[in-house]
Design a protein around this nucleic acid. Sequence first.
DNA 1: CTGTTAGCGCTTTCAG
DNA 2: CTGAAAGCGCTAACAG
Lengths: 343, 343
Amino acid sequence: MDNKIVTIKEIATKLNISPSTVSRALHDHKSIGLRTKARVQELAKELNYEPNQTAIFFQQRKTFTIGVILPELSEAFFSSAISGIEDCANKNKYTVLMGQSHDDTEREKQLVETMKNHRVDGLLVSIAKNTTTYEHFEAIKKYDIPVVFFDRIPSMENIHYVACNMASGTTQAFNFLRKLGHKTIGMINGPMNLLASKERVEGYRNALTKARLKYDPSLIISCDLTTDGIHKVTEKLLSLKNKPTAIIAFNDYVLLDAVEAVKKLKLKINKDVSFVSYANLPISNYSAHPPLASVEQFSYQQGYKAMEIMLDLLSKTNSENDNTTFYKIILEPQLIIHTPATL
Amino acid sequence: MDNKIVTIKEIATKLNISPSTVSRALHDHKSIGLRTKARVQELAKELNYEPNQTAIFFQQRKTFTIGVILPELSEAFFSSAISGIEDCANKNKYTVLMGQSHDDTEREKQLVETMKNHRVDGLLVSIAKNTTTYEHFEAIKKYDIPVVFFDRIPSMENIHYVACNMASGTTQAFNFLRKLGHKTIGMINGPMNLLASKERVEGYRNALTKARLKYDPSLIISCDLTTDGIHKVTEKLLSLKNKPTAIIAFNDYVLLDAVEAVKKLKLKINKDVSFVSYANLPISNYSAHPPLASVEQFSYQQGYKAMEIMLDLLSKTNSENDNTTFYKIILEPQLIIHTPATL
DNA sequence: CTGTTAGCGCTTTCAG
DNA sequence: CTGAAAGCGCTAACAG
């Protein structure tokens, strides 16, 4: 068995020509004679030549690899998003280097470091939920590694990102509930360092303003998105004097925990309290207590789009250092109303 | 801003010593004087030196990168498995290069190629459901890139793999249903090129044999695992003369489609026909029609274990080329019986 | 304890 | 149209 790895040099000596000629022939360089080009390509195939990418990466200072950092792969939103990223990357000859922060800022920092050392061409990140300092992302700019954020966007200036307009999604959700007759609507929100949490509040308040209603801040409670946190918050909401008859849950996972809390209180879903949530994950379709509606956030598309932006950034990174314009792609979410049949 | 990237050579000239000394000092080589070591490390930190991994990868013929090829990231089983892989890899200073085959053999082949060119140190793969030729995996062995398969194992000799003992899982499922009084038990199986499908049949037959029952082959039907295929197969099973009162579904996703088919036939779940399935995915916990029980396959653990085997293989790949012993790790699955409360 | 040297495999000027 | 040579950044004999 020809276990040995074939190099350009070998092809060269076997053909009595120089390595540079071989390299050029392999790349279909115009200045190479058809005759030699053919001979080289033939022998290359015969010997089963494979270019050593690590050598090329090193030499070209480009790895055709994109680093992706996200909180948790087992959350459907993220696995779907990275699926989109990978599809787009693959289509464009890029590969994906993946790491999960597990919502731990320290690990996130370390991953940025690893990715940098691996010389990824770019970084796609969805930040850990309690990341509040951003030096690690600032730092990487100096290395000409573009960063595009998706979904979980940090509160930083001058960044590229793609996200869903959660304000508008929340307004949609709110109005939907209003139309069903709900007067008092609560919200289980996420940590306030997330843009998405701020936007939810914004959308909620916009809806109130438009409807000329008064804002009761106690109806919106932030939590850390842990099961315990969600249970507590749900109980709190449902024990208010101004008790909500409907609740907007941060996402479909949060909803699952909120539903449990409601059951513990011996209240009836869709009777004592109704829910609307975000993400529109497949679990909702099969759930025993699906939300009345869920704000679709197009996770796959977000990932795909983020990668497209990255490709664009990479294509012109050398010519113009456009440190002035930033992509801020905001997808319009869509409230998916679940049919009565499934309720 | 010091945008320039610092190299060992620079540190060397600034300190009037040789690059090799710097390299050694940075690696805490014992033969370097404490004095110089300190000076080097200090300056390195000051200049913010970062080793160029691509150079190291190239030079060392090792990338500390593991390629992972799996069918579909948005399937919970796989995202959970890769989560385990990544955790184990990360803990051991390895990174994960990821690609989805989307159950397409062509793309799988191409991914193997890409991974090979990227010079991954090893490959972890769960094959596409209709992959039946394995040259691409045979080929990669010549490059000293170990391959460990997980969950979806090809019918090849001499491979490393970790999987769940689906035979035993199926026997457990079968016996569970028998105890509930079911006499005629059907099975929606996957494509027969998958080891897991063969094992299901084996487990089914073992259970029959032990119970001294006769085997009716029409009660086991293979399908392509598409929604349409599942619908057809379900209808077929339920229109047999020897009609099953319980069905073992290939996994929790298949179950969802099978349930739909049952509804279309106006039959009642858990009355006309009961289900048991595999995977025990979270969806089951929230599903409107969860299976009576589900065979837990420990996806995260499978991924983690596969990566551990890989690490072991990598640690001794140079010393002994142990082409004779192969890891065949078979995890014992566990039938998780869903509490009546959720039914 | 430290320096010299060579080389990993490839691309790419610069000369013919 | 082709060759010679340099060099990407780092490590590792080998030689002091």
